[in-house]
Design a binder for these strands. Structure first.
Lengths: 147, 147
DNA sequence: ATACTAAACTGGAATCATTCCACAATGAGG
DNA sequence: CCTCATTGTGGAATGATTCCAGTTTAGTAT
């Protein structure tokens, strides 16, 4: 799982000419400490608040957007749920549990062949995302349908 | 491309014990006539209005949700765009053009192996979706970055 | 056919994640 | 340590979607 560390992310900010601010550092730390949870903006906002003296929700949104556009993290969109952010930038599958909502990653053994897609559909792929819905190990045996 | 026709969709409604109403028929027709566009709720609402005397936006939303939950169509979620609906229920890739926003389908040669995922990750897949972003044939040569 | 009832429909209000805006604060190069 | 473009702020605006209380209607039973 290729997940960038604190130093790498900071280096990437410098590289892109983006400033290192206390808010951005707090957001980076919040992302790293919750990387397995695929956190959303609200969670990151709450965590970042504990680290930096001043962070606003607007800033969290702007920063996560900035980070996504610059390839530091990946933004995941879901129905009727806030967006979530994934520090794992390698080709992988997001397994989304319908019952508990947890999202786990599964490394893809045979990634999609961008060459095939380009050749056959004339479409140049710059980014891809695979999402599978179903039931995780803990939920698969459980009765009921609650989220 | 496995796309259900009018009769099949109506049959599926009966099968599930859902009523056949003028609104639902209008929505089915709107879906079928725009199947390649992967239409959103607004487009379906406008098209359905031309066919049925009375349809409300609330009904369109409720109906599309109902259809998705009953496996008649598939709901696609995107960032900063309304949801779109896809009548193609087979395993395929949604190719989303970053410039013109068009969504085309690409049939998947080697589908994800649900057996592998279950064995290795303990996760039971009930539904999956693959989204690739990039540039379609018409947009790949174009300059500029407008949407 | 006619009546009945649960399922559908309506439209306007409510929700909620996200974005926008005008102004204030600040990082980093000179 | 000055300067100013970049970043941050918070409150208002947006826009897709859902909710709700009341009305209509499809389909079954009479």
């Amino acid at each position: 799982m290729k997940t960038a560390g604190r130093q790498e992310l900071i280096a990437k900010l410098r590289e892109k000419g983006l400033k290192i601010t206390s808010q951005r550092l707090a957001i980076i730390d919040a992302l790293l400490e919750n990387r397995l949870a695929h956190p959303g903006a609200t969670l990151i906002f709450n965590e970042a608040r504990k680290k930096a003296d001043r962070v606003s929700l607007s800033t969290v949104y702007a920063t996560l957007k900035e980070f996504s556009e610059n390839g530091l993290i990946r933004q995941l969109e879901f129905d009727r749920m806030e967006n979530r952010y994934d520090g794992n930038l390698s080709d992988h599958v997001n397994l989304v549990c319908k019952r508990c909502g947890r999202i786990q990653d599964w490394d893809l053994p045979a990634p999609l062949d961008a060459g095939d897609i380009r050749r056959e559909a004339g479409f140049v792929v710059t980014d891809s995302r695979i999402e599978c819905h179903g039931y995780c190990r803990d939920c698969v045996g459980e009765p009921g349908e609650s989220v």
